[in-house]
Design a protein around this nucleic acid. Structure first.
Lengths: 335, 335
DNA sequence: CTGAAAGCGCTTACAG
DNA sequence: CTGAAAGCGCTTACAG
């Protein structure tokens, strides 16, 4: 026995499928009596509409595709949380795609999303390459960028001001009396979260009349291990350092780990500042002072905007969401 | 200009849609020449099949629904990573659902998944209530359980042996010379990850002729804060404790945090053992000795099994995957 | 207030 | 080797 279709209920209720469809959608054009009859037999048969069939005629699937370079990172998870929340509120489903930051795989996924006729796409934390843009453009559906943006194409995005946030983080350290501040930067070539944060750091130094010492800047890839490596390098340099600003919480925590191993007390002997404010920032000891990015909120905003675009709004603004420094225990006044 | 359909390519290639469909699926029944002609015009028009239309006739959408009580937890993320991996390998998409461990919301999601005609469901980390089972049964699609199981219904699952793992963790502590071992347990009423772990703990104690002291067992809810609270309680008890076994890494880390705050040295003065081996277990200092659950692998296995079931395999076995203890730095030999 | 019919973009017997 | 046609489960003018 197959599940009942609209035809089955039409037959059982002695009306046409058109009528059933009308009451299903609360359109006008039927008496109270037939409405009741239809509703009753829907109940009775346990009828459930088929969204696939509906999607075929409406050309709307009520689903959106979300691309992450790394689904299982805390960063992505928190974004996903916000995305899922508003999608569900607005009756959209989300298909999640893990691109592994790989071009081939991303293209493959974009193909799949196209074939599955998603209504829109959220693209996160990666540079939108030309080839990606081209295929999305062909699909004629809206996209929104999260935690990335495109210089070349005008696409709505939601992100923080990385340069400013890094500036403020560095300045915060300076206000605490630190002048020998190292930076564990993100991926060197990353024009979204790599370069701007280094620029912010440098600018803050300059504005405070502190010379920039390139040997105090070490590059990682945002992940824990690279933070460890960077810290080792910094320590090997034997230049004086009283504070470290890391471009991600993970790297900050990695740095903290090697500090511990070397018997360096945090924050008494070395202050460490992170970036992101992932939930693990509050879990480590000492809790990490860091730049808070409202990831869940960013996910929410992006999804709200995407849905507006899907619903038919012509354009939607980009959002620079506000970061702030959350003071915990890993940074202290310089003695 | 709408995107080209199979009809458009048929017309342009001067063949019937049936033929186009055949070459699309590599069926037999056309000459090399027409094959080439069709392929060329597909290329030329940039034709992409419409999976929605295909799904309608095939009654297969190549998508599976995945339910998490909390999408943004590390636990779920790692599961999701494995799930996504094999889904993608096997040409399935996944719709992720965040149930927030809420019955209403779960039912809502199940409805959505039904309407969207998913081919199967992965249900994780929560008790499968009767009402959930009933609706899934009506849908006539396979389900697999991850990190949970059902006593009442015979549904394939993949999980670890919680009782045994807790037993071994406790025994490990005992072998290290500890006899005053507290437990920070999970949710008291949780028959999957709560009760069995306490039972394993108790059994290990008993088998080693150590009396069970109920005041050494404090219940949390697997989350960080509850681990902190539990540790406070334990410390307030003033009963002697040299080691703590926590039923989750988060709780272990919470406990470590309050230990630090009280000036208790880990592991010198107190050994702490976790459960899960989330990536954060290696991030904290000292790195957490814990019970490793192969979460990503569990996600993979579950998805492989689900797809087998979808493909038509009659039945598939359940899997008790192997855990193991990973020794890091938070546990030491009792002095 | 209501129904017959076309159409969404495919697949798949069936017939030749 | 190939095509005409029915059908998947809906929605939506159109006509009455």
């Amino acid at each position: 026995m197959n599940p009942p279709t609209i035809k089955d209920v039409a037959k059982a209720a002695n009306v046409s499928v058109a009528t059933v469809s009308r009451v299903l959608h609360n359109l006008s054009g039927y008496s109270e009596k037939t409405k009741k009859k239809v509703l009753d037999t829907i109940e009775e048969l346990g009828y459930q509409p088929n969204a696939i069939a509906r999607g075929l005629v409406n050309k709307r699937t009520q689903t959106i595709g979300v691309l992450f370079p790394n689904v299982s990172s805390s960063f992505s998870s928190e974004l996903l949380h916000g995305i899922e929340e508003v999608a569900h509120e607005q009756e959209f489903s989300i298909i999640v795609c893990n691109t592994v930051a790989d071009g081939i795989r991303t293209m493959k996924y974009l193909q799949v999303l196209r074939e599955k006729q998603v209504d829109g796409i959220i693209f996160t934390s990666e540079l939108l390459r030309d080839e990606y843009y081209r295929i999305i453009e062909e699909m004629k559906i809206p996209v929104v960028l999260v935690n990335t943006y495109s210089q070349k194409y005008q696409i709505p995005y939601v992100k923080t001001d990385d340069r400013q946030a890094a500036y403020q983080a560095t300045d915060y350290l300076i206000q605490k009396g630190h002048r020998d501040i190292a930076m564990i930067a993100g991926t060197k070539s990353d024009i979204i979260a790599g370069i701007p944060r280094v620029e912010g750091y440098k600018q803050a130094l300059t504005d405070n009349h502190i010379d920039i010492d390139e040997s105090k800047i070490v590059y990682g890839d945002f992940q824990l291990q690279s933070g460890r490596d960077a810290m080792e390098t910094l320590l090997a340099n034997e230049t004086r350092i009283t504070a470290v600003f890391a471009a991600s919480d993970e790297m900050a925590i990695g740095a903290m780990g090697v500090a511990y191993e070397k018997g360096i007390k945090i924050p008494e002997e070395l202050s460490i500042m992170g970036y992101d404010d992932l939930s693990l920032a509050q879990m480590v000891y000492p809790p990490l002072t860091t730049v808070h990015q409202p990831l869940k909120e960013m996910g929410r905003i992006a999804t709200e905007n995407l849905i507006k675009l899907i619903i038919g709004k012509e354009r939607v603004s980009s959002n620079i969401v506000t970061h702030h420094i959350v003071e915990r225990k890993s940074v202290t006044e310089k003695a």
